[in-house]
Design a protein around this nucleic acid. Structure first.
Length: 287
DNA sequence: GCCCAGGAGTGTG
DNA sequence: CACACTCATGGG
């Protein structure tokens, strides 16, 4: 019998708006009351903060949901320890208090891979729409009005013509090729690789270059040393660190500077750069 | 209507 | 290695 399940989690610090609304993941949506809802695996989940407690509703409930939510929000990351290390950077140091609750998320590898291949040369609203279209047409229903992201098998069964009608543009070809070159076994093998090998392996896949490989390494495979660089990060690195150049040059700068938690540094800077473009507010500065 | 987007692939100097 | 060009499209 499918029933709803409610429970609390201790995850602190945690800011749901910063964590779920900044382009790490694309299927959560925010209600007017501040709660966030989205499909997580085979569960439709709604979460909200009450003080330092995270209140969770899941449908259907079941064993492992608690661990699933905790894992997705990387509850075991010691933010204070991470920030203590990143505070060695004077630019980050001044703004860290404002992003304490911004956590890296841990997403499903396959969903993350397809999502960030779709994300190439598109803005976040459009990425969200492409992913919703694929899910609503080809994913499994898990609750009224909610469907899971399509599995590899489900997406592989979609005809070329059908996929072409999903508004993916030239990305449709990448998705088809991904289905042919990646399966669960390939992903399991990639989980075992050290970061640099994983990165190179990902870049062998169709539609995956430097930036997508780093996003999938970071969010899908949980490699916190990844440092994805898009146009927003180029601006941030130029403005705050006076760094310009090729992807490889910028990346090596970031790896040297931020080390094993470069991914957190990246998300902090990315969040800040978009915030600045939005309403002029700014957490980090170089002054 | 215009501008731009969590870029990648390919070819050329 | 570093650029230049193309790809296809919809949201702001």
């Amino acid at each position: 019998m499918r029933t709803e399940m409610r429970f609390d989690l201790e995850i602190s610090p945690l800011d749901l708006d910063q964590t779920l609304g900044c382009g790490q993941t694309f299927r959560w949506h925010r209600s007017a009351d501040g709660a966030w809802s989205g499909p997580l695996g085979r569960h439709s989940v709604t979460i909200s903060m009450s003080g330092r407690r995270l209140e969770v509703e899941a449908f259907p409930g079941g064993r492992g949901v608690r661990e699933f939510v905790a894992s997705h929000l990387r509850a075991d990351d010691d933010i204070r320890s991470i920030q203590r290390i990143l505070a060695k950077d004077p630019v980050l140091k001044r703004g860290l208090a404002h992003v304490k609750g911004l956590r890296i998320v841990k997403t499903d590898e396959w969903e993350c891979l397809v999502s960030f291949v779709l994300a190439t040369y598109a803005n976040i609203p459009r990425i969200t729409k492409m992913i919703e279209t694929l899910s609503s047409r080809f994913g499994s229903p898990i609750a009224p009005g909610v469907r899971a992201f399509p599995t590899h098998a489900q997406l592989s069964a979609v005809s070329k013509a059908e996929l072409a009608e999903c508004g993916l543009g030239y990305r449709a070809g990448y998705v088809r090729e991904l289905c042919e070159t990646v399966d669960e076994g390939v992903i399991e093998d990639m989980k075992k690789l050290p970061y640099n090998d994983l990165r190179e392996r990902l870049k062998e896949l169709p539609g995956v270059g430097d930036k997508v490989a780093d996003c999938v390494s970071l969010f899908g495979f949980g490699r916190l040393e990844s440092f994805p660089i898009d146009v927003w990060m180029e601006r941030a690195l130029a403005r705050l660190y006076h760094q310009k150049g090729t992807y490889g040059k910028l990346r090596s700068f970031a790896v040297r500077r931020f080390g094993q938690y470069a991914g957190y540094a990246q998300e902090y800077l990315y969040f800040n750069e978009r915030l600045k473009a939005g309403d002029g507010a700014c957490v980090f500065s170089d002054e």
